[in-house]
Write a protein that binds this DNA or RNA. Structure first.
Lengths: 115, 115
DNA sequence: TCACATACTGTGTAGTATACACTATAATGT
DNA sequence: ACATTATAGTGTATACTACACAGTATGTGA
């Protein structure tokens, strides 16, 4: 069905951008990528590991996250955590998100003054 | 400030994808592009005309919209309206949007069972 | 009548991001 | 031994938005 293809493309686009918001929201505590995938999945947000890794690196290069390797555990893991800048941006982004959500909801309200 | 550049980039990405939803939501009645820009702007959603036009064409090529030129008025205008398929997809997308919004909201809830 | 703003649609290009397939390795369970 | 899971990484194709630019017609003020 072609309809489904179009729809899933649009859904893909919808998710886009929100992923950063999701990731940032969870990184108050140092967390490694693989774990983050699971945390988000539990909360209904599915993101592929190989989509997440480049994202984490990008956010780090933008100064929103900082990372450190921990080798004392069984497997070497790279822990990421929000920087102060990351925190500020996360908050600003969330605020923007909330207002976007309100605006979009309003689009479905019936306009009483129509015409 | 570099922070603002990063932030506006992320906001850009956040908007992305939602634009289709916004546009579809308003096309129950035949409307032309320029007018649609104004309608959305009134409702707090700003989109450049030259961003909208390619989008309308794309949605038409995907079968979600259909268009017709109206030349009887002062200026020739191209009116777009949702097709039935467009309507179905719009509804499905909105449903998906709502559940995404709920999931994301939940990310900010404090987890009582933490640890 | 000239200039300019505004209404209206269109196109081309660059930047950037996600998805997905693939590589790689070590531990753990069977 | 072998399969699976845990863990991180890279490269490429695809697709979209933003933005600058093009182009026409109408109305308006000087």
């Amino acid at each position: 069905m072609v309809k489904d293809e179009v729809l899933s493309g649009l859904i893909l686009e919808l998710r886009r951008g929100t992923i950063v918001l999701c990731v940032l929201s969870q990184l108050n505590e140092p967390t490694y990528g693989y774990n983050l995938v699971n945390i988000l999945a539990e909360k209904g947000i599915n993101i592929e590991a190989n989509t997440l890794y480049p994202l984490l690196r990008r956010l780090e290069s933008q100064g929103l996250l900082e990372s450190s390797w921990v080798t004392s555990e069984a497997k070497p893991r790279k822990y990421y955590v929000k920087t102060q800048k990351g925190n500020e941006i996360c908050n600003a982004l969330k605020q923007h998100w909330d207002s976007m959500v309100r605006n979009i909801d309003r689009l479905w309200e019936v306009d009483i003054n129509e015409k």
